[in-house]
């Protein structure tokens, strides 16, 4: 009975989970762009700009995204108008901004380090971080984004049955375990290919150098 019920929940969870993926992708994109920009500022010749970049980075690194989530949820109004035009800010955008902050810190660190070292580009650190943010995206349920965690909570609350707690959360846990297993396997294969190409290229370069 329970198993059939859980299976029937699959499409709903799938839909909710797609929201997690959307939030994570947007937060990654936003964070990488801001990260690139702050890295650029960081390498500026002017001390003042460097200082600004450093203090931004410090804030992005030190404020937990969880706290930022609340900050944005409570400070920014959900709707406001300018000259009789109505704007709506969906909660999901707030989640993207909040989760974009740690990505910015991470991206900045990566870019600054990458400048000094000549290494093959590897997807692994990025994909690991993607999974970290994907998992963190579940916290946006707290400010009312209807993602997988919120859906699980709603399913239990609507059923009014405390016996549903363990099976439903276990389903969510399993979901994430399988998701990260699939991801890490894919990434491993992909990185092997990338590393091979880099090595081949390096070998070629070395051979050409020998000829000269």
């Amino acid at each position: 009975m329970t198993i059939y019920y859980l299976i029937s929940l699959f499409p709903v969870f799938m839909q909710a989970f797609s929201l997690n993926i959307v939030i994570t992708l947007c937060a990654m994109a936003l964070g990488i762009m801001t990260g690139l920009y702050i890295t650029k500022l960081h390498l500026s010749r002017f001390k003042l700009i460097q200082l600004i970049a450093k203090s931004f980075l410090l804030v992005f690194r030190n404020v937990p995204s969880f706290v930022l989530l609340f900050y944005l949820a409570l400070i920014i109004p959900t709707q406001f108008s300018l000259a009789s035009m109505h704007f709506q800010i969906p909660v999901i955008a707030k989640a993207v901004f909040a989760l974009g902050a740690p990505v910015t810190g991470f991206a900045c660190g990566y870019f600054l380090e990458a400048r000094t070292q000549n290494k093959a580009f590897q997807l692994a650190p990025w994909s690991q971080y993607f999974i970290v943010i994907l998992m963190a995206s579940t916290t946006s349920s707290i400010i009312g984004v209807k993602e997988i965690m919120a859906t699980a909570n709603a399913t239990i609350a609507i059923s009014g049955d405390s016996q549903m707690v363990i099976p439903i959360y276990s389903l969510v846990a399993l979901w994430f375990i399988s998701c990260s297993l699939i991801c890490s396997w894919l990434i491993k294969r992909f990185d092997q290919v990338l590393l091979q190409r880099f090595n081949n290229k390096a070998q070629l370069n070395a051979q050409e150098g020998d000829k000269e």
Partner: peptide, 21 residues
Amino acid sequence: NVQRSVPPIVLLYLLYFGLFS
């Protein structure tokens, strides 16, 4: 390592509202 791929918040809810209840 398995528990590392579960978001901590899911485990928090699972344990608090589930197993430990």
